Amino acid sequence: MINFNGEILDSDLQLTVSNRSFLYGDGVFETLKIVDNRILFFEDHYFRLLASMRIIRMQIPMSFTFEYLESQVLALVNQQNIQNSARVRLTVFRNDGGFYSPTDNSVSFVIQANELTQKVYSIADKSFEVDLYKDFVVTKQLLSTLKTNNKIIQITASIFAQENQLDSCLLINEEKNVIEATNGNLFMLMNNQLFTPPISEGCLNGIMRKQILKLAEALGNVEVIEKEISPFDLQKADELFVTNVIVGIQPITKYRKKEFKTTLSEELLAKLNQSIEV
């Protein structure tokens, strides 16, 4: 079941071979978490979506108000009876026509939803091992910070992780700085200082990244710094963790031969759950 341009359909959407998202990755998306029939951090998601559409020169429909898109997402999860806890993907793509140069900039949207097993954010009691992925780099540019439909680096890095019995990989930019993981933004604790790469490094402008920055600053016992992270820094870190809207915080327990604590991760996760009143 999906919501395509405001119409809820029982079956998956059948795209044409001329679909621009399929042909060229000509689209952007938001991954949303639903808890108790509300979209967490939806205002941040909404404004990031519109900003992304403007950056890639899509025509934003007059109907794309905050209230309209919120109602379309909730209509789908209620129709599927998964409004208590769900993962939603809202994809906007440019309509068919043209080759690299589109014939017009009008858009369509499709919303998909899947049930989640729990509402609260939690940390799985298991190891989470990562390593660097160096086959390809993420460039330091504005497009790298958007959630576009071109995620081939994250895909190949995820396959690399599977082939090497890793849980995820850390991505680097052209200056060989570590910018993020395949599944979210990266944070590093070292000597009571919490570091995360600035957006200018090419990392995703993450919604959960924004929440964690605010929560960490409110703790008062760590200094929060947006700064470049080198691969050498990782070996000296006290903690490493990854953030995204679906899992909240995922602690990294091992990078190469170094193992890490999860104390701050657990403290921030408790604060995150309190902030959303789950």
Score class of each variant (00 low, 15 high):
E67M: 04
L74E: 01
F64A: 00
Q80W: 03
T16E: 13
F64H: 02
V73I: 15
S52W: 00
V73Y: 08
N81T: 07
V35W: 02
V17H: 12
P61C: 04
L50M: 11
S18E: 10
E43I: 05
L50F: 09
Y24T: 03
I82R: 11
L32P: 06
V28Q: 03
F29I: 04
I55E: 10
Y24E: 00
Q79V: 05
F41P: 04
D44Y: 12
M58Y: 11
S63K: 13
M58V: 00
S63R: 11
F29R: 03
I39Q: 01
M58R: 01
P61M: 05
L49N: 10
P61R: 05
L40G: 08
T31A: 04
L32W: 07
L69N: 06
H45W: 05
E30F: 14
S21R: 09
V77W: 14
L76G: 04
G27T: 06
T65H: 05
D36P: 09
M53N: 02
F66N: 10
I55Y: 15
S63D: 10
L69W: 09
R54P: 00
Q14Y: 15
I39L: 08
V35N: 07
T65M: 05
Q59C: 08
R57H: 13
D36T: 07
E67K: 14
M58P: 01
S52K: 03
V77D: 06
S52N: 01
G27S: 07
M53V: 01
L74P: 00
Y68V: 11
I82Y: 13
L69Y: 10
T65Y: 02
V73Q: 06
E70S: 13
D36S: 15
D44A: 13
G27D: 04
S52D: 00
V77R: 09
H45Y: 03
E30C: 08
H45M: 02
E30Q: 11
L40T: 06
L69E: 03
P61W: 10
E43Y: 12
V73F: 09
S52Y: 01
S18K: 14
L15G: 03
F42G: 05
V73M: 06
P61T: 04
I60Q: 02
S71Q: 13
R54Q: 07
V17C: 11
P61K: 05
L23V: 10
F41K: 06
D44F: 09
E43L: 11
Q72V: 01
G25E: 09
F66R: 15
K33D: 04
H45T: 01
V17M: 13
T31D: 02
K33E: 04
D44H: 11
Y46C: 08
F29K: 03
S18N: 14
V73P: 06
L76Y: 11
K33N: 04
Q72K: 15
R48V: 00
M62A: 12
E67A: 14
G25L: 12
E67N: 13
F47C: 01
L40H: 11
R38C: 02
N81E: 14
A75V: 00
M53T: 02
V77C: 08
N78W: 09
N19Y: 12
